[in-house]
Amino acid sequence: MALFGKKDEEHAANLVFQQLRLAADRRARFYVVVRTRDGKQHSLPGLIESYEGPTLLIDMSTGVRLSSAWKGQTVECYFRIVAMAPQRTEQHFMFASRILDIRALSTGLIVELEKPAAIDSGQRRRSVRVRPVPELVGLLEMRRDQSSDDGPLPLAALDDYRRIIGVAAQNPLEGDAPTVPLAPAPAADQGPVPASSPASDPQPGLVDISAGGLRACIAPRAGEDGEKGPLTRGDKVVLRAILHWPGGAHQPLDVLLKGEISTRMHTGSVAGGVDVGVEYLLDGKIDADGTVTWVPVRDGVYRIAQWVNAVYMEYMRKVRSR
């Protein structure tokens, strides 16, 4: 739903101007999302340089590369405004625009955008990221992707993949529904390690998660090189996660995904650990006969986005009630 209507164009233009001015004054991070021919999206960060003229100028860092061939292309734009008093609040805004010009400067890159007639309230689905409390993470398991392709395969075949992190699943995935009734699985960082999982297996900690990826803190296996660790950037993995809804509103969310290690930090969120970032690539759909079919992830996994939003809204409800 549009935050600023278009019935009164002059009034709408004033509201757009006010929000852009506030974003510029507070140095709010501004994102321009471009979509390549293969369907992948790239989020380019910048800051509002000028908003007073007929167009919108965005100052991007020297690390951003954008070809002049993008002139005339329609893009999605996102920014948020944070207020700290009387309590911390966030407002997220979005609008579609068109790239009018791209100018390379010695200090970076200036992208000239068509100024929007209206701005919507909302944010990019895959970019909403939360840090769930441990009680909401029933299981986090990561294995190396050992398949030769991304074609269908029996669910049981995943048992032979080398486990990188995680405890043994008590309730195997079955059927084609992602939220089949499950008995609560042990939290990933709580309780004893089942006998089916080697004692040297590092136990993961879910640092944060979004509809497009997650970050986990893991420790090297016993006797493994701590600097090199069990995973490096570019490695392909298979993820399984069981996520409990706040307040037990629904059956736990049980997801199976293929992903790629996109980042690896030298230090972890937990002492002695190493943080790795995973980008979702394929979503596993399980047929009644136990065959996994992999579906490409375009703009995040929708059911994870719903869960992330529920966790975020529960957090905001608690903050506002204080």
Rank of each mutant, 00 (worst) to 15 (best):
A169T: 15
A169R: 15
A169N: 15
P172V: 03
E174P: 00
D176L: 10
A177D: 15
P178N: 06
P178W: 07
T179V: 13
T179R: 14
T179F: 13
T179M: 15
T179H: 14
T179P: 03
V180Y: 07
V180I: 11
V180K: 08
P181E: 07
P181F: 06
L182S: 11
L182N: 09
L182V: 15
A183Q: 14
P184I: 07
A185G: 11
P186A: 14
A187Q: 14
A187L: 05
G191Y: 02
V193K: 12
A195H: 10
S196T: 12
S196W: 08
S197Q: 12
S197M: 13
A199I: 14
D201G: 08
P202N: 03
P202F: 04
P202K: 07
Q203W: 15
Q203Y: 14
V207D: 07
D208F: 04
D208L: 04
D208M: 04
I209K: 11
G212H: 04
G212V: 05
G213I: 03
G213Q: 02
L214Y: 02
L214V: 08
R215W: 05
C217S: 13
C217A: 10
I218L: 02
A219H: 12
A222Y: 12
A222S: 13
G223L: 03
G223W: 00
E224T: 02
G226A: 07
E227S: 11
K228Q: 11
K228R: 11
G234A: 03
K236H: 11
K236R: 15
L239E: 07
L239N: 07
R240S: 14
R240K: 14
H244G: 11
H244P: 05
W245H: 09
W245Y: 10
W245T: 06
P246Y: 11
P246N: 09
G248H: 10
H250W: 13
Q251M: 13
D254S: 09
D254H: 13
D254V: 01
D254P: 06
L257T: 03
L257Q: 06
K258L: 02
G259E: 03
E260S: 10
S262E: 08
T263C: 04
R264G: 01
R264K: 07
R264N: 00
R264W: 00
M265V: 03
H266L: 09
T267Q: 09
T267R: 07
G268Y: 01
G268F: 01
S269V: 04
V270A: 08
A271H: 09
V274H: 01
V274I: 12
D275T: 00
V276C: 01
V276W: 00
V276D: 00
V276Y: 01
G277M: 05
G277T: 07
E279I: 10
Y280L: 06
L282G: 01
D283C: 08
K285V: 09
K285Y: 06
I286S: 03
